[in-house]
């Protein structure tokens, strides 16, 4: 590929478009929204990007299979509650508690995957059911009591400000992104997951253990969801069962916004880690900017819905355009 060709490919890519859009919005909000680029606001934006980015990437790992995971929020809350239980009831140190939470999340995800693969039902209905089962069981076990006596190193980490304005949660998000990028780009495991998701039938005929790979995708989703759950609790300073709304459903919009904006296909087999990160940044910039413009916090949800709608329609239009162009040739 020559350099001009490569440049043209870059300029047509989804991520490039997002980058331009982010730059324009940041500039616009900097001019029109008073206090948008203040240190306090940048801190809160980076914190939200950290949390929602990890939520989005968790969903992305299961979008790879062409399925989805409605139970992501429930898994995140359950795992965070598991961490709280390990810390406070069992009195374990931070590191093993975290490990316990991630393993719990991965196990819950694996249950989803196992049911999807063995029953061959669509993951929508399976995770709709498990969302209710996981969340209900967690509330019954915990008696809907949260954990608010978190160890100081954990709450301190949540409150830390790097350079006075960057939340360390952003760095956690980058770490997760880097690991996923490596897995999908450079490991056989990642390539196999993508191949299985793109065309399960062909992958099966070529000898891939498609069922096992799909269970791994769901487990990965659960594990990353657990990380997101802990991150969200750090923002609150406590682990509470209601942090992701009823049944954890409040996570659904951020979970789908980021990967879909970033160009991850809902039909499976294609991911863009960079796109998901940029998608999250885009969403958080708009959210924070609209908040600063004081259009009323409730209308922001409407605006995000419009963004999602606009993005998918734009993507559709571009795909149609590309098809028209390539067939004319």
């Amino acid at each position: 590929m020559t350099l001009p060709m490569r440049l043209r490919a870059v300029s047509r890519s989804n991520s490039f478009g997002l980058l331009i859009a982010i730059a324009l919005f940041v500039l616009g909000f900097h001019v029109f929204a008073h206090g948008f680029t203040s240190k306090v606001n940048i801190y809160s934006i980076t914190r939200s990007i950290g949390i929602d980015g990890v939520i989005g990437m968790a969903m992305m790992t299961v979008l790879v299979t062409g399925g989805l995971n409605l139970a992501l929020g429930a898994i995140g809350v359950c795992s965070a509650m598991g961490v709280g239980w390990a810390l406070q009831t069992l009195g374990l140190p931070v590191a093993p508690s975290m490990l316990f939470g991630v393993v719990l999340g991965a196990a819950l995800g694996a249950i989803n995957g196992l049911i999807v693969v063995t029953t061959r039902l669509h993951s929508f209905v399976v995770t709709l059911a498990t969302m209710s089962i996981f969340f209900g069981t967690m509330v019954l076990l915990s008696g809907s009591n949260g954990f608010n006596a978190l160890p100081r190193e954990l709450t301190g980490f949540g409150r830390m400000r790097l350079f006075g304005m960057v939340s360390p949660l952003l760095l956690v998000m980058f770490a997760v992104a880097a690991v996923l990028f490596y897995i999908y780009r450079y490991t056989a495991f990642g390539r196999e997951m993508l191949a299985a998701g793109a065309n399960p039938f062909a992958a099966k005929l070529s000898g891939l253990p498609v069922e096992r790979l799909f269970i791994w995708c769901h487990a990965l989703c659960g594990g990353i969801g657990a990380i997101a759950g802990v991150m969200a609790s750090l923002r609150n300073g406590a682990i509470v069962p209601s942090m992701a709304g009823p049944l954890g459903a409040d996570w659904l919009l951020p979970a789908f916004l980021a990967p879909v904006l970033g160009g991850t296909l809902l039909t499976g087999g294609a991911v863009s880690v960079l796109g998901a990160v940029l998608g999250t940044v885009f969403v958080e910039v708009i959210t924070s900017g609209l908040y600063m413009l004081q259009i009323g916090e409730f209308w922001i949800q409407t605006a995000l819905g419009l963004v999602l709608l606009g993005a998918i329609l734009l993507e559709r239009g571009r795909a149609a355009l590309a098809l028209a162009r390539s067939t004319r040739r």
Binding site: V260, L266, W299, I300, T302, G305
Partner: peptide
């Protein structure tokens, strides 16, 4: 799924707003 996820948040936001 994705279309109604978007309109879900539009309608919900509007009713809250």
């Amino acid at each position: 799924f994705i279309v109604t996820l978007a309109t879900l948040s539009i309608f919900k936001g509007a009713s809250l707003g």
